[in-house]
Each structure stands twice: as structure tokens, then as C-alpha cells.
Nucleic acid binder design. Structure first.
Length: 485
RNA sequence: GGCGACGUAGCCAAGUGGUAAGGCAGGGCUCUGCAAAAGCCUUAUUCGUCGGUUCGAUUCCGACCGUCGCCUCCA
């Protein structure tokens, strides 16, 4: 079966074919690093991460570039976002950038978002940007006014093709402010003249200045991926103008298409309104991680389709946390059972049919993911697998080690490698050997109390362990424990 | 005003021209010292409203109502 993806450029579900056979070249618009990332970023980047993971799972070699915007992106007041943050915190602008680059990467690492091959920064590509801007002027696509350079949207009939905008519509739109220097209201800055406040500045043929927001993505994507490349990802809020500006300037400069497929993630909302810094209704990823596990946040994001907007709520996150725990409990039980089995035991033939029926889960999962990364259906397949696993483990039938490890492999591949909702240290009980020995001593003690029917003392141990994040479960015969998610 | 998306049980969320996946929450039962975990059963005559096409529509078409996003701050 073929992988089909929804391409925002054509608004159609298309069969996905990379330009270069096995290699997929992908660019994703990264964050402006002037603050901690919030759950909206988590939604977009977890969604894109699953795209990367699934492509890899399917045998493609993904070459992934995601930028950091560290200059040129201004607030609605016109002030550069990085300078604004640096001024408020009394830091050098690049110091601020370093802090939030590290913060972002730490958050993404915790969420299990795989790092891209390259994370280029705009400020490191000023020479390339200047070369591009000069070329665009020479080709009649851009013009200089008082040290700033603007892209002329009228020079390209294709402008607005991703966001489906027509120039007349833009002129009719109410909020468009005409900057006196621009020839057309939709013209956008490639290079901005630096005023005295602007400390992030570079010499250029047009005087001291700094790059505009959109040009970096075109320049860096072209530099590291070549053009055209396969996939351009990001969030829907950037369709217009950012993505359209990227396309128009890149195609004017390169004379070939920019990106073949555009995959854009829907926004995260809070009570129906978009979660964003300007509305002040955001929850940072690090704050969210105090309340929910990384797997719960991923589970929440993946429980709706990546293109759909998702409403954040405590109930939704709680439900996701429960769903993730449910999955983890089943896998934990499974692995416990595998450890109990002696390698020679249970090599019976009864398992053969089981194993082949288990492969249908893989096929169902793959069919769901092939259908434009339908993660809600993929999660439903995993839920079915969890139920079947639990039933098997609870039942009285002997299950072979082969069957157990086949199921474990399914969970590792699908829940672990593709969706990233199985923690790597699931079977590791605690932080180290000492914790393990202490807990097992306490459990021995509790067993003694239970045998003596001193329930109060036995329950007190359970409660204290609960308080430090260790859950215990009395099974038939023995008591097991694990760190709570 | 322009462009686009969406409205499915208490909540979240898939889906199909042939009679509604899955999750969470709720209810009942089993297991258990209690708990936790797990299992079994149970929870939408119905898919925003009204028309149309059809043997048959939640799914296609039209109108209407409602919600949301973008239209140069945003992942």
C-alpha cells in the first residue's frame, strides 16, 4: 500500500514519492527563540516528529532541517523579538538566544522529539542572505529604499499560492498597514536598515542592517536541502504570509519549485481560541511537564489528527495520561512475564497462529499511518492490541516466549519507535540499584506485616511509597512496583 | 469583505453510499485483607438544522445556523 499525504499546496491527498528515491529531504519552520516553548509548539513539533519517525519506519532516510529564528522577527510594535527579550532580561541578545535554544532543545528532548540533522540559525547565514537579496534586486524582484530592501510581490504572479491569496483581496483586507517605503502593501522586507536601537546588525551593500523574517527559511532550506526538496512542514498559522513569502522569494531566486509537499499542523487551542503568546493563554512545556508525563502530552497530541485543531483542557490531558498509563501497564506486564519464562520453556506450537494474527495489528497500524498519518486510528489499533495482550496475560493458557516477544516487538516498533509513547526505561525500576534494593526491602517488610494481618502498618508503607512516586500492585503471589508516569 | 477549516455520545476523537472505530469518564460483575492493576458486560435508532439526489446518506449536492483559523506578532 502506498503512503498518502495531504498536500496543502494542492489541497489534495497525494501519493508520496520522494524526489530521490529513498531519501526524504524535509524542512520544518522552527521557533523564534525569545522565550520558553509552550504546548502549541509541542503540538506542532510532536506532529512533525511522528511524520519523521514514520517515514524512517517505512524505510526512508530522512534528512531533516529545522531552523532557529534568532534575528529579524519583530513584534507588532516593530521591535525585534530577540532584542525585546534581551532588553527586558538585561542580557546580550545572543545570550538570550543561547538560553532559549537550550531550553527548546531540552523540552523537545524530554518530549521525545528527535533532533533534526541540522538546526541552522539565521544570524549565522547573513552572508548567504545578502547574496540572495542582491540577486533578487538584480532580477527585478526586489528594490531598495533608504537602506531597506523589499520583495516586490507584483513581480511574481504566483504570490500567495499556498495561502490562496490574490493581491486584490489583500488590498481590500482591513488591517493591512501601508508602510510608506513599500510600493505595494503586501511587499515584505528582505533586509531592514538598522536604527540606533538595533544591536543585531551587519554591514551590507545597503548600509548596516539585519535580515527580514522570511528570507532565512528560503536561504537555509535551499542551502542544506537543495531545491526542490520533498517536504516543508510547520504550523497552519504560518501559511500566510510567512510560508508564501518563503515560496515566492525562493522560486524567484532559484527558478525551480521550492518544496513539493507542504504538511502543516493545526493549532492548539484553549477554550476555542488559539494558544499563543499574544493572547497570554499559554502553558509552557516545562510547566506542563510538572503535571503530565511526556508520553501523556504526546498521546494527547496524537489522539487527534495532525491537521485538526485541538482544544487543550485538563480533562483531555488527564484522559491522555490515563491512556498512556494503560499502554505502559500492559507492556510492563508483558515484559515481566517474559523475564519469568525460562528460555527453554513454552516453545510449544500453539503460538504460531497467535503470531500470524498479531501481524494484522502491524498491518492495521500501517494502513492508518499510510492514510495521511492518521494517528487517532493508529492509537485505536494499539488499544486493541493492549486489550488482547492483557487478555492473553490474564488467561490461563500457556503463552510461549516467542509470542510474548513478538508482541513486545510490536509495541517497541509501533508505540515506541513510531509514536514515541513508550518510555525507554519502562522496565527499569527506578533510578538505580540502590533504589531497587531499598524498595524491595520495604516490600519485604510490608509482606511481613500483611502476613501478620497488620493492615495499618502495611498500608502505611504503601502510602509512603505512593508519596515518593512509587506505585505498587499486589499480584497473585508477589508484589510488583514501578515509578509512576 | 477575501481565503480556509470544522460542527459525531458526558468529554476527547476516527470513519464510511448500506445502517456508527478507539480512548477517558460513568454503571454492573470477577479477582482482592483493602487498594491498585487487569478481565468481562454496559453507555449514540444516531452523526448542527432544513431540503435535494438515491432502493438507501452521518457520508454526495444545495441552503441555513453555529464555532474557529489566516488576511504581515505567532508553531
Amino acid at each position: 500500500m502506498a503512503l498518502k499525504v495531504y498536500n496543502y499546496l494542492t489541497h489534495e491527498l497525494e501519493r508520496f514519492r520522494p524526489i530521490d528515491g529513498e531519501i526524504v529531504r524535509m524542512y520544518v519552520c522552527g521557533p523564534t527563540v525569545s522565550d520558553h516553548a509552550h504546548l502549541g509548539h509541542a503540538k506542532t513539533y510532536v506532529a512533525m516528529d511522528v511524520v519523521v519517525r514514520y517515514l524512517s519506519h517505512r524505510g526512508f532516510q530522512v534528512y531533516h532541517v529545522r531552523n532557529f529564528t534568532d534575528v529579524g522577527h519583530s513584534l507588532d510594535t516593530g521591535e525585534d523579538r530577540i532584542l525585546h527579550g534581551a532588553r527586558r532580561q538585561g542580557l546580550n541578545p545572543m545570550e538570550l538566544v543561547d538560553i532559549y535554544v537550550r531550553s527548546f532543545l531540552a523540552d523537545m528532548d524530554t518530549l521525545g522529539v528527535q533532533r533534526p540533522n541540522i538546526s541552522p540559525r539565521a544570524a549565522c547565514h547573513v552572508p548567504e542572505i545578502i547574496t540572495w537579496v542582491r540577486a533578487l534586486i538584480e532580477q527585478g524582484h526586489a528594490y531598495e529604499v533608504a537602506g531597506s530592501v523589499y520583495f516586490s510581490v507584483a513581480s511574481s504572479p504566483d504570490y500567495g499560492k499556498l495561502g490562496r491569496r490574490q493581491l486584490p483581496d489583500l488590498q481590500a483586507g482591513a488591517p493591512v498597514q501601508m508602510c510608506a517605503e513599500k510600493r505595494h502593501p503586501a511587499d515584505f522586507a528582505l533586509w531592514k536598515a538598522a536604527d540606533s536601537e538595533q544591536t543585531l546588525r551587519w554591514p551590507s551593500p545597503w548600509g548596516e542592517g539585519y535580515p527580514g523574517w522570511h528570507i532565512e527559511c528560503s536561504v537555509m532550506a535551499t542551502k542544506y536541502l537543495g531545491v526542490p526538496f520533498d517536504i516543508h512542514g510547520g504550523g497552519v498559522e504560518n501559511i500566510f504570509p510567512h510560508n508564501d513569502c518563503e515560496i515566492v522569494q525562493a522560486e524567484a531566486h532559484n527558478h525551480v519549485p521550492f518544496a513539493n509537499t507542504w504538511l502543516l499542523a493545526g493549532s492548539l487551542r484553549v477554550n476555542g481560541a488559539k494558544m499563543s503568546k499574544s493572547l497570554g493563554n499559554f502553558l509552557t512545556i516545562r510547566d506542563a511537564l510538572h503535571l503530565y508525563s511526556p508520553e501523556a502530552i504526546r498521546y494527547f497530541v496524537l489522539s487527534s489528527h495532525y491537521r485538526a485543531p485541538v482544544d487543550f483542557s485538563r480533562d483531555a490531558l488527564k484522559a491522555a495520561q490515563r491512556g498512556a498509563n494503560h499502554l505502559h501497564a500492559a507492556v510492563r506486564q508483558l515484559r515481566r512475564r517474559m523475564q519469568e519464562k525460562l528460555p527453554t520453556e513454552g516453545a510449544g506450537t500453539a503460538a504460531l497462529s497467535d503470531v500470524s494474527s498479531l501481524e494484522t495489528y502491524r498491518a492495521r497500524f500501517r494502513a492508518a499511518m499510510d492514510d495521511d498519518f492518521n494517528t487517532p486510528v493508529a492509537l485505536a489499533v494499539l488499544s486493541d492490541l493492549v486489550s488482547e495482550t492483557n487478555r492473553m496475560l490474564d488467561g490461563s493458557l500457556l503463552v510461549s516466549l516467542g509470542t510474548l516477544s513478538t508482541i513486545d516487538k510490536l509495541f517497541r516498533d509501533l508505540a515506541g519507535d513510531v509514536l514515541g509513547i513508550l518510555p525507554r526505561n519502562l522496565e527499569m525500576q527506578g533510578d538505580g540499584q540502590m533504589v531497587g534494593e531499598l524498595v524491595s526491602y520495604l516490600l519485604d517488610l510490608r509482606t511481613e506485616f500483611r502476613d501478620a494481618q497488620e493492615w495499618g502498618r502495611a498500608d502505611a508503607i504503601r502510602e509512603r511509597l505512593e508519596q515518593v512516586g512509587i506505585a505498587i500492585e499486589d499480584g497473585p503471589g508477589d508484589t510488583t512496583w514501578h515509578m509512576k508516569g
